[in-house]
Design a protein around this nucleic acid. Sequence first.
DNA 1: CAAACGACTTAACATATGTTAATGCCGCGT
DNA 2: ACGCGGCATTAACATATGTTAAGTCGTTTG
Lengths: 187, 187
Amino acid sequence: MDLTDYFAQQFPALMAHWPTLKSKFTAKKVSAGTTLLSEGDVATHLYFIISGAARLSHSSAERDITLQFFFENQIVASFESFYLDQPSGFALTCFEDSELLVLTKTDFDWLRQTYPEVEPEITRFVCERFITYRNIFFNQLEQSPVERYQNLVENEPEILDRVPLHLVASYLGITPVSLSRIRTRLK
Amino acid sequence: MDLTDYFAQQFPALMAHWPTLKSKFTAKKVSAGTTLLSEGDVATHLYFIISGAARLSHSSAERDITLQFFFENQIVASFESFYLDQPSGFALTCFEDSELLVLTKTDFDWLRQTYPEVEPEITRFVCERFITYRNIFFNQLEQSPVERYQNLVENEPEILDRVPLHLVASYLGITPVSLSRIRTRLK
DNA sequence: CAAACGACTTAACATATGTTAATGCCGCGT
DNA sequence: ACGCGGCATTAACATATGTTAAGTCGTTTG
């Protein structure tokens, strides 16, 4: 799946304007550790990951929680911030060297206004994002760390292959020490 | 604040059609313990609380979590289910004898279609609900039970006055036993 | 090439929570 | 009036987690 496949799937009506849309994306290379968006800032860019990996996270005094990982051929942004022009509750960081395609909010808004027929697709996409967030939080609330780890092994093994364990721990909402204990316990 | 004040505040454009809107509401009395919406069902009604109290909750095998309490002069529903026609992730239950005004989804949709100028207000309202949920979940994730209890005492003392402690515990994401210990510790 | 750094594991300790169970209190209904 | 049930508190116990610290291994870097 490449960028065109992604858009064809997520935004069929928008895809009709692909030539225009395509020209709005600009390429960008960043090194591991680059922050694309800080918590509290309003998102002004949307990214498509050509190669590399990013994480959406939320930090407090005590913890650093990863909400989601993003890899090749995925769109990533703090969508609710990008869409609503609200300060983001999440930070967005590349944890591998990455190649990105970037779409500015200005171009995005221009597309929305120019092609109003895509509006429902965008609304639907944002609503689905919110539902996704809700499900992520439900998992955190209703499952134990062990259960969450087992789910990860079952359903998202690619994350374990690719993401350093201390970030996996933050994804599970526990410390790296605790994750290590869980892994030995389950051996 | 009564129902008209509430609508004037939340939906000024909708309020212009108040006489029509008013006639769509029907009164309903329910006794404590009545479930207005079960988890997994699609919300077909919106409620305005004249008197009494309700809670929005999510149950799993292990826990029963209260996300929010609602009292007099508040609109309550599983908004994301009502708006998106999706199965609700939450149950809605009255935990006191309550008098309600009820608006059906059918009438709600009729209002939306008849007065399209209110659509942005509704979208905004739903987005704000999502942001509210996000903040509730953030609190659960980043604060300790003791901190959450202290926040409650500080910012929502009316809940402690009115809600039985075992429900307060479910609101804090802990067991009644643990809440009781926290309270004695803080004395 | 050696040192430094990052990632991961393991151990030891303190602590808070869940669980289960017993007790007391209060209100409600028969 | 009496008894039952729901609610809250308290105690005892098991357990998982966080914290701190130490140690290993591998890679990067000067």
